[in-house]
């Protein structure tokens, strides 16, 4: 590993900018998850929110010089894969029953 030359510029991007970007992405994902009516679009918005959280974790990992944040992102990726698989399977099952995945029409629990 001694041959690896790492670039350490003194003028880097402050970590606060990464956190600001992460918060902005999270907010965008929140608006999408609250306003969309198509189930799959809501899922995509949630993926944006997950990515914003991952970005914040990696930024903190860089700033604090600890790998724990990166390992947490690793687990988040695995759980997101499981969530996508189960969620999309649920949408397929719901679509078989109702012929729609518009969440305004999936209101069985309301009645």
């Amino acid at each position: 590993m001694s041959g690896v030359q790492l670039v350490n510029e003194t003028v880097g991007v402050p970590v606060g900018w990464y956190l600001l970007l992460s918060v902005a992405l999270f907010g965008i994902g929140t608006v999408g998850a609250l306003t969309r009516r198509n189930g799959i679009s809501i899922f995509l918005s949630i993926e944006v929110m997950l990515n914003a959280a991952n970005l914040a974790l990696v930024a903190y990992s860089r700033q604090l010089d600890q790998r724990t944040g990166q390992i947490l992102v690793f687990f988040v990726l695995a759980v997101a894969a499981a969530e996508a698989a189960v969620g999309l399977a649920l949408f397929i099952a719901v679509y078989r029953q109702r012929r729609t995945i518009d969440i305004n029409r999936i209101n069985l629990m309301r009645h």
Partner: peptide
């Protein structure tokens, strides 16, 4: 951390 400068990238 908002105002902190970027930490050095360690190997």
């Amino acid at each position: 951390l908002g105002a902190a400068p970027q930490a050095a990238l360690t190997e």
